[in-house]
């Protein structure tokens, strides 16, 4: 199973622990990757607000690079997945648009013919690695933890661009939470918005969204949250304290990237997953994992 890894900006910028934890687990799951080191930002839906065709060209440039390697793309960011998945659908279904965008790529000697698929790590683990292989790799079950999935927007909606989970009833994150032996926490906010796209300019609205989702998860009994999107992670982790003040709640809810949760269950040391880089303390999660490890050594289930 080989993919062209599209890192995106966040994993190379403000959430380096996402890149680190991804690289720490994929080999064990039998996923080989070649990193697209010359790939640009996907535009995150923001570039497209000013320049829709330019933003499509950024995605097409990345697709052409992967096509040159003969590989499909693996994303590790929910936002990149949504933006690039949507771009890919448009380019594949509109030959005139594809031709126009290819003219923008031509000076670099690139051409995209529409043969690449774009898949998020979450989907690759659920559908291609499969639960059996994943369970073989699990060393420590996270049985004491109640984990709240937080999907974010772009990995679910619009479903005709994404096409993996049912946007009204997604199950992929819950499947992985159960696979690591933990209990999945049900709450309405799991499919809502983290507020990140407007957090700098409309902080109060964004933090209300963010805080409401975190509080709902906490009230439903969550010990931690896990997300497949680093932009959600920035909002939920970096801004958590402010979000708590906005909704009048003491949150202190550790938020993990998806590969960090998988890595802990696979027995990868927390520092190799970049757990020390979080703003909200992840100590309670690490303690729970350590306790399980000790129990396992002592021969208890």
């Amino acid at each position: 199973m080989k993919y062209a890894l599209y890192p995106g900006c966040a994993a190379k910028g403000a959430t380096p622990e996402l890149f680190q934890s991804t690289m720490a687990i994929i080999g064990r799951l039998g996923i080989e990757v070649t990193e697209l080191t010359a790939s640009s930002c996907c535009g995150a839906g923001v570039v497209g607000e000013a320049d829709p065709e330019g933003a499509l060209a950024l995605s097409a440039r990345t697709f052409a690079q992967a096509e040159g390697l003969g590989l499909d793309i693996m994303t590790i960011c929910g936002t990149c997945q949504g933006v690039m998945g949507g771009a890919n659908r448009r380019l594949k279904s509109d030959p005139a648009l594809l031709a126009r965008v290819n003219r923008l790529l031509a000076p670099e000697g690139l051409v995209y013919s529409g043969m690449v698929q774009v898949k998020h790590l979450l989907w690759i683990v659920v559908r291609e690695v499969g639960m059996e292989r994943l369970k073989d790799e699990i060393q420590i079950t996270l049985g004491d933890l109640h984990i709240a999935p937080f999907y974010g927007c772009y990995i679910l909606r619009p479903s005709w661009d994404v096409g993996f989970d049912d946007p009204e009833h997604p199950t992929s994150m819950e499947t992985l939470i159960r696979a690591v032996g933990a209990e999945s926490v049900e709450y309405a906010g799991k499919v809502k918005c983290c507020g990140f796209p407007i957090i700098l300019e409309k902080e109060n609205i964004a933090l209300t969204m963010n805080g409401t989702n975190l509080k709902e998860a906490k009230d439903a009994g969550a010990d931690m949250m896990v997300t497949p999107c680093p932009l959600c992670h920035m909002s939920l982790d970096i801004y958590q304290e402010r979000a708590g003040r906005t909704v009048n709640a003491r949150l202190e809810l550790p938020v993990l990237h998806l590969p960090q949760m998988l890595g802990l269950a696979m027995g990868v040391p927390p520092e190799q997953l970049g757990m020390q880089r979080h703003l909200v303390s992840v100590e309670p999660v690490i303690e729970a994992v350590e306790a399980r490890k000790t129990m396992k050594k002592a021969g208890r289930p």
């Binding site: 927007c153 909606r157 619009p158 479903s159 809502k192 990140f196 796209p197 300019e201």
Partner: peptide, 11 residues
């Protein structure tokens, strides 16, 4: 500028 582009309305 208050829209966060969550795509719920589109969906």
């Amino acid at each position: 500028w208050d829209c966060t582009r969550c795509n719920f309305c589109v969906q």
